[in-house]
């Protein structure tokens, strides 16, 4: 049976060519639906990281603990734990680097798929000459590109600030996480930037954590109503959780006292003299 005969082939030419299929699984990334799939999965990975990162940071509220017969900030214990992740199986820090590699790959793909889909959308659409109304689209869904871009620059800033410690406004010291974070965020301008960036991140998540279900084809009338609630819940959790750190440090709820620990940051001693 052949395909049906049609009286007239439609007259318009496509606005873009169909690319030659690459071998599996690269062909999945050749179409927009596939790219949205990649966008959703990498988004989910990054979301998992953001939640884990926040939960880890909550340890700064615990303060000083007794660990291996030494008094040390719990946040620093946690940092050590991350370095030693899966240690009998991998040498120290190796598994951490594998995780970081995964995150880097996820960020790269997330951004690349955004870039190529944005280009596709810009070439497909024509702006209305008069004002058009938005009924279902919300601020979050319409600002994904911009919230995403700002969050990206914020991540670079955050890495420079607290991972590489190359920013000039405080004395960074490796493996003294509690010291670094309290020093950096006690600067109100830096703290304000962290809070604003996290609000934008939450707005990004508010649409992303809902949209990923649609992109992945996860849709079932039985639980569809939960998807929006999930996205809202996660967005609020991230916003409240992550903003709590700069607020706590600014108000002095979380601070760094060199007298409470056995191995204080050297810079903290210089200052108190």
């Amino acid at each position: 049976m052949a395909s049906p005969t049609l009286a007239k082939k439609s007259s318009l030419n496509p606005i873009r060519r169909r690319s030659k299929p690459l071998p599996f699984p690269l062909n999945l990334y050749q179409t927009a639906v596939g790219k949205k799939w990649v966008m959703a999965i990498t988004g989910l990975m990054l979301l998992g990281f953001v939640i884990g990162h926040m939960v880890g940071n909550l340890k700064m509220f615990i303060g000083v603990v007794e660990h291996n017969d030494e008094r040390i900030y719990d946040l620093d214990v946690y940092a050590e734990f991350l370095q030693e992740l899966l240690v009998p199986i991998f040498p120290p820090t190796v598994f951490l680097w594998i995780l970081r590699g995964g995150l880097l790959a996820a960020v790269t793909l997330h951004i690349h798929s955004m870039y190529s889909l944005t280009r596709m959308n810009l070439t497909s659409s024509i702006k209305y000459k008069e004002k058009r109304t938005w009924i279902a689209a919300n601020f979050a869904s319409r600002s994904m590109r911009y919230s995403g871009m700002i969050v990206f620059f914020y991540i670079i800033f955050h890495l420079a600030d607290l991972t590489f410690g190359v920013l000039p406004w405080y004395e960074f010291e490796r493996h003294q996480v509690q010291w670094n974070v309290t020093e950096s965020l006690s600067n109100p301008v830096v703290a304000a930037f962290y809070i604003i960036a996290n609000i934008l991140l939450s707005i990004h998540i508010f649409h992303g954590a809902y949209s990923m279900f649609q992109s992945l084809g996860i849709n079932n009338p039985r639980y569809n109503s939960l998807r929006r609630g999930f996205a809202t819940g996660v967005a609020i959790l991230i916003c409240v959780g992550n903003s709590a750190f700069p607020v706590a440090i600014l108000t002095g709820v979380v601070d760094y006292d060199p007298d409470l620990v056995d191995h204080p940051a050297e810079a903290s001693l210089v200052e108190s003299e």
């Binding site: 606005i15 169909r18 889909l117 009924i135 279902a136 869904s141 319409r142 994904m144 949209s211 992109s215």
Partner: peptide
């Protein structure tokens, strides 16, 4: 059908304007 669609149209960002319209 998807691949033909993508030769003419943009990609879905799940705004939901379509169902409203």
């Amino acid at each position: 059908m998807v691949e033909t669609m993508e030769q003419f149209f943009g990609s879905c960002t799940n705004h939901g304007e379509c169902s409203e319209a």
